[in-house]
Design a protein around this nucleic acid. Structure first.
Length: 461
RNA sequence: UCCUCGGUAGCUCAAUCGGCAGAGCGGGUGGCUGUUAACCACUAGGUUCGAGGUUCGAGUCCUCGCCGAGGAGCCA
């Protein structure tokens, strides 16, 4: 038996072609490497697939090889009477997740879920695992799956989530870019705290201390003064010892900041963005939502206009619904869950008390105890996905707020400069990507919404 | 940091009142020409998280420790 293969490069595409392929005496000439996702256009052609064996069944004289290559999955059917004895025996010895090259005829088949199958005539084992694949076909516990995140990502469920995450990010950037926003990223290493000293990761920075960014907002404000409509997008870090289904220590945040937008313009932008993201996921990720068994009708509700509640109205509503949260304190997770269950689409909670919000938010013109801000809560109990505000643009008031909060002034001198040189009404917000992905995908826990979740007790893999 | 729950075969979990350590999946062997987490038969596989203690007898009860999960607070 011989296993040999040779390649050349197509002049047009640069994609390698298999010039010849031989196994067990059979030789296939010029069998092109194709992706599984392209098979529907290759019916009745001989092709070679490269990928992994994610499952295998056998009925004695027929092997069913389930293959995955990142563009889709397909079943390869190897019939004993159609291949050599040796090849059939070799295939029987394959373990799950073996990497393989499989050659065969693409065929329509009513019995296949995708409608397409491969009649296998050739097989090259790139590597057959020497031990059994850790992730089996039956259920696993979350601890085991997180320990094996590097392998768990191969599952159809995780693939679906990653595709939705990709779509959410792609759609958000496309939405902003096409509306004239400039991407101006912010630093991850900073010499000063963003929103307050707690929850910061401290790192050694040569002979001094530095911190991992909790937000890029202050930098985005500077960029907005330079370029008008801007956003930043990157990882942010919170050293809080949170252990909940909606917290990570490292997560990705999209932060638009817009010159001459007030509080209302800001909420309008948030609403348009969320409607766009959901509609894009519905349009492009139907298969993935099906894999995740997501109730799509819940997403089809996500249309303008979103309801708005003043903070004080939210407190009243919560009181009627049995919450003991009193006016003056922030809403708890339980409160958010109760509120969001009253609506079939995201709900804005506006104008919180100044005391529970950050120093940079602009004071409400009609009530100095409130600030012009909003939290956007996703439905079905998912809760806060966006926090935004109009920023304080008055030099004296901003400085007073920094002092009231007991913050050091020196680190904010450059931030105050933005109010010295051409100050301007401006607003912005931060959207947590993983929270949006978790909501749209219908996940029980945010950790599945990021490839490599970082939580308090997990740094590996 | 606090509250709650958990740790038994490679994995997911059972084990009645404290009384022989079990099943499914996975592994191995064999069977099956259309399987869809395939199925059927046989088979191997255990320091019950660790250290003490109570008891004739501990996976089970007690004490301490380790590890993890869910939630609270905080936040996106």
């Amino acid at each position: 038996m011989s296993f040999s293969v040779s390649y050349t490069r197509s002049r047009n595409s640069g994609r390698p072609f298999l010039l010849s392929f031989s196994l067990g005496g059979r030789v296939h000439m010029s069998v092109p490497w194709v992706y599984i996702g392209d098979l529907p256009s290759k019916i009745d052609s001989q092709v070679t697939l490269r990928g992994w064996l994610y499952n295998m069944r056998s009925s004695g004289k027929i092997h069913f090889l389930q293959l995955r290559d990142g563009t889709g999955t397909v079943q390869g059917v190897m019939v004993k009477s159609e291949v050599s004895e040796d090849l059939f025996a070799v295939a029987k010895g394959l373990r799950l997740e073996a990497s393989v090259e499989v050659t065969g005829l693409v065929r329509r088949d009513e019995r296949a879920p995708s409608g397409v199958e491969l009649s296998v005539s050739g097989l090259k084992i790139l590597q057959n695992p020497e031990s059994e694949y850790p992730i089996g076909k039956k259920d696993h516990g979350i601890d085991f799956l997180l320990d094996n995140r590097h392998l768990w990502l191969r599952s159809s469920r995780q693939y679906a989530i990653m595709k939705i995450r990709d779509r959410v990010i792609w759609a958000a950037r496309e939405f902003l870019h096409s509306d004239g926003y400039l991407l101006v990223d912010s630093p991850i290493i900073s010499g000063a705290a963003g929103e307050g000293a707690s929850g910061l990761f401290e790192i050694d920075y040569f002979d001094s201390k530095a911190y991992l960014a909790q937000t890029g907002q202050l930098y985005a404000e500077a960029a907005a003064a330079a370029y008008g409509k801007v956003y930043c997008f990157g990882p942010t870090f919170r050293a809080e010892k949170s252990k909940t289904r909606r917290h990570l220590t490292e997560f990705w945040m999209l932060e638009p900041e817009v010159a001459f937008y007030d509080h209302k313009d800001n909420m309008d932008l948030q609403e348009r963005l969320i409607v766009h993201l959901v509609s894009q996921v519905l349009e492009h990720c139907g298969e993935e939502l099906h894999t995740l068994e997501r109730d799509v009708s819940k997403l089809e509700n996500i249309k303008s206009p979103f309801p708005h509640l003043q903070y004080s109205e939210a407190i009243d509503m919560l009181s009627r619904l049995g919450s003991s949260t009193l006016y003056g304190s922030d809403l708890g997770n339980e409160d958010e869950t109760i509120l969001t269950k009253q609506f079939d689409r995201p709900v804005f909670i506006e104008n919180y008390p100044k005391s529970v919000k950050a120093f940079y938010m602009k004071e409400h013109p009609d009530n100095p105890d409130l600030v012009l801000c909003d939290d956007l809560l996703a439905p079905e109990g998912y809760g806060e996905i966006i926090g935004g505000s109009q920023r304080e643009d008055d030099y004296d008031r901003l400085l007073a707020r920094i002092r009231e909060e007991g913050l050091p002034e020196e680190p904010y001198d450059w931030y105050l400069d933005l109010r010295r040189y051409g100050t301007f009404v401006h607003s912005g917000f931060g959207m947590g990507i993983e929270r949006v992905v978790a909501w749209v995908s219908g996940l029980q826990h945010i950790r599945e919404a990021i490839p490599w979740p970082r939580t308090i007790y997990r740094l590996k893999p």
